[in-house]
């Protein structure tokens, strides 16, 4: 699955993540540290993901 990490603008591939919470775990993020977007829709941690999904993970910690 293709994941775009923002604001770094970095592409990563993650295999078989299952649901959002697992995906975040693989990225070493807590659910309150990023928002997860699929086709302009926000996903809660329980939502299942598909191999074909294009996902954006936007980390929220502000800078400066």
């Amino acid at each position: 699955m293709q994941i775009l990490i923002e604001p770094d603008n970095k592409m990563v591939h993650i295999e078989r993540s299952g649901n959002v919470i697992n995906l975040l775990k693989k990225l070493e993020l807590r659910p309150n540290q990023a928002i997860v977007i699929r086709e302009n829709e926000l996903l809660t941690p329980d939502r299942m993901l598909d191999e074909e999904d294009k996902i954006v993970v936007r980390k929220i910690a502000s800078r400066g």
Binding site: I35, L42, I60, S62, R63, G64
Partner: peptide
């Protein structure tokens, strides 16, 4: 901060995250 991030996304706020 998580709640504000969700709010800005849902409200379509085009904010800046170019770091200083």
């Amino acid at each position: 901060e998580f709640e504000t991030a969700n709010y800005s996304f849902l409200a379509g706020i085009d904010y800046c995250y170019a770091p200083c």
